[in-house]
């Protein structure tokens, strides 16, 4: 097979130890985690399972670090044809789509309980008879501050702000500032990208640092928000469906922001090391896409969880 001048070789690594050992790491992580959760729920000691999970997670992290490092080295060594680079682009794009669908499940649950099941339990709508038979005194409301059966799911405290939409209200409203912060961070990230394409490394590092900083501030404010929810409002994971949807939606978003901040930090380090070229910086773009994606999810959260 003589190589044709028009054909670039698609680089297929001969062998790799990463996938197999990453599988072991992943398995130990979830197996240990399952043990931890079961032990806690059964009131037993969790030591062994904790170690299993930690060892697994260490292996997984180490392998993924090496894996990404190898991929970067291959690119720097010029092994990646234009076609191979397109594979990474497709891969990241559809990975983000799968994340969209993950959030869709939680948004779907939110819409379902707000539009259907809570009203039904309150005696309204097509299946309103459910309310009559189960908890006749229950009144549908959102945010749900009085649960159908408060002995099973303790009610949040009274006095959760009802949104009043005045400028003064927004000034003291954490989610509003978090929205501002995340949207700003998307813009600063875009400036960093522009600087990267213009080969202005100093500007690039400045804007990347600002973006990472904004991500960290967002996470800090979100932690504050949780303290407020738990301490002040009594909205907890086990305080009924309002807390359930609130914490899983914002919690998974926060987890994704954490991951995104981590990715951007890695990109910042790579910017400092000078890894990127104006025409070859897909690692940066992938992280940026991911960041814009968590930003968009937040806008959805702000509208449907906080405002409406």
């Amino acid at each position: 097979m003589a190589s044709e001048s028009s054909h670039e070789t698609y680089y297929v690594p001969e062998q790799s130890k990463f996938p197999f050992f990453a599988s072991i790491g992943l398995f130990l992580t979830v197996f240990g985690l399952g043990g931890v959760l079961n032990d806690i729920s059964a009131g037993a000691s969790v030591t062994g399972s904790t170690w299993t999970a930690l060892i697994g997670f260490t292996i997984l992290s180490f392998i993924l670090f090496q894996w990404f490092a190898t991929t970067i080295r291959e690119n720097h060594a010029g092994l990646n044809s234009a076609q191979l680079k397109r594979s990474y682009v497709w891969g990241m794009g559809w990975f983000i789509f799968s994340e969209v669908m993950f959030f869709a499940a939680f948004f779907g649950a939110l819409f379902y309980v707000r539009q259907l099941s809570v009203p039904w339990l309150g005696g309204e709508g097509d299946k309103g008879s459910a309310g009559e038979f189960l908890w006749p005194q229950f009144q549908a409301a959102w945010p749900l501050l009085v649960n159908p059966d408060p002995s099973a799911y303790p009610n949040p405290h009274e006095g959760l702000n009802v949104t009043s939409w005045s400028p003064a209200f927004f000034a003291g409203y954490l989610p509003f500032w978090n929205t501002v912060i995340l949207i700003t961070s998307s813009v600063t990230l875009h400036f960093a990208h522009v600087a990267l394409k213009a080969e202005n490394r100093k500007r690039l590092i400045q804007w990347m640092s600002v973006t990472v900083g904004l991500g960290v501030i967002f996470l800090g404010l979100q932690a504050l928000e949780y303290v407020e929810a738990y301490g002040h409002y009594g909205i907890t994971l086990d305080s009924g469906i309002y807390g359930s949807t609130f914490f899983l939606l914002t919690g998974f978003h926060g987890f994704h922001v954490t991951l995104g901040t981590f990715m951007l930090t890695v990109m910042l380090i790579r910017c400092i090391k000078g890894h990127f070229k104006p025409n070859d910086h897909f690692g940066f773009e992938a992280a940026a896409w991911y960041w814009h994606f968590v930003d968009v999810v937040w806008v959805g959260l702000f509208i449907f969880v906080y405002c409406l």
Partner: peptide
């Protein structure tokens, strides 16, 4: 959601907490 209902007391699938 199942995992959280089982271990963390969320109410996604329990009408007593407003889920379904």
């Amino acid at each position: 959601m199942m995992l959280f209902d089982i271990h963390f007391g969320t109410a996604f699938f329990d009408a007593a907490g407003g889920g379904d």
